[in-house]
Nucleic acid binder design. Structure first.
Lengths: 231, 231
DNA sequence: CGGTATCCGCAAAGATACTG
DNA sequence: CAGTATCTTTGCGGATACCG
């Protein structure tokens, strides 16, 4: 009960095992994935991670905090409260999580069945499928209004950031359901058609849409379009 | 009982979650880590992964095979039997595992306490801390005789491979306990001193030792030398 | 050697209720 | 909103027995 019985650790003198002792428990990496786009509140996790249970969430957050991967922060006054965010060390996992997501994405279903969706995951996928060679010039801020809320995409030269929430000011606001936004950014539909059909609506410098689309390279068969189940 | 009870899947439409549904279970990534250096037999896992239990191992191997990450192979006749190896898809995890190992290595203990060690993990770490900029010229084959057996390091130009087992012929055979080999390759001891003290013994083209050492860049505070436990 | 099957005990995970 | 408390369920580890 009280006695901390050093849980179930691998206790191997190996970097991978040491990493898994920190972030290998169930739900841990999904918590970190959600934190890639910015701080999250406790209650946001409970809705963003259906099935986790508040006790498990408490336990994971504590363990991640102890490991120095996540830290608690007090939010500014309007709406106040506490939030969780990645530490510097935790942020070093970003390229690893993105690579893992690309790897898993190759076997990801199409969206049918009992799968849960979330705009935040889709927004994180934008980071994963960013075209590193494509510079953003001039520096631009986009606001993407997706199914679960607004997200900010900022590009300046070779840098690109994606964060949850709306920017103070955007060059262009793009509103669409997650799937329509995917179709647009993956080049599955022409911008002109998407706008005419009403699936996507713009507000602001419409010229900036081209730049947005050009920054991402989604895998060709299309992550959301093809069910991959080998015989 | 027989009915596939679809275990505990996340069922999220997200690449990271899909990946974790395949390789997120306990022990799975450690199995894959061990496979980085070549095929492994069932019984080798049971000794290489102390604490796993044969039933869990069976379950994991089956799941990884079903996921297309691992495949069974019949070994050639002397000693025959079956072995497990990575599929092409599984091999794509290599850079991710190596990066994860580097990340975890920053918090890895020094080797004291109840930690388990294994030459195979140390050999895998060589892949993780390879200096990509350093070419191997001329092409060279080293045999490292470590505590748990021989390993083969092959370098040709910008390519470097590390595999379990001895090569058919080596330019240089280096014998040392894991820790002494680490001290040597990490530049913690001078080759000349290591040889004079008897901690390291050579057989073959002794000139090739310099090239071997130059190919690796271990993090400066030394993964095996400093206990990192923040207050 | 290369596993499968079964039983047992524990600790993690899930569900739900409740509280500062 | 941010958790704690309680109870149940299930996966995992450990041991052992068995089998081709």
């Amino acid at each position: 009960m009280l006695v901390g019985q050093m849980k179930r650790r691998y206790s191997q003198l190996c970097g991978v095992a040491t990493a898994l002792d920190m972030i290998g428990d169930r739900w841990a990496l999904l918590i970190l994935r959600d934190l890639l786009l910015g701080p999250m509140r406790f209650s946001e996790f409970t809705t963003s991670l259906p099935g986790i249970g508040s006790n498990t969430l408490t336990s994971r957050l504590k363990a991640l905090e102890t490991a120095g991967v996540v830290q608690r922060r007090l939010l500014a006054l309007p709406e106040g409260g506490t939030a969780y965010e990645l530490t510097e060390y935790g942020r070093e996992l970003e390229p690893i999580l993105l690579a893992l997501g690309r790897w898993g994405g190759k076997r990801m279903g199409s969206g049918l069945g009992e799968m849960v969706t979330n705009s935040r995951w889709f927004a994180a996928a934008l980071l994963a499928y960013r075209n590193e060679r494509q510079e953003v010039d001039p520096a631009t801020t986009w606001e993407l209004r997706l199914s679960d809320g607004p997200f900010t995409v900022r590009g300046e030269g070779t840098q690109l950031t994606v964060t949850a929430g709306a920017p103070e000011s955007a060059d262009l606001i793009v509103s669409a359901a997650d799937r329509d936004m995917y179709m647009l950014l993956a080049g599955q539909v022409k911008p002109s058609e998407a706008i005419e059909s009403g699936a996507v609506t713009l507000s602001g410098d419409e010229e900036a849409l081209e730049r947005l689309v050009s920054v991402f390279v989604f895998p060709t068969p299309a992550a959301l379009g093809v069910q991959t189940s080998s015989p």
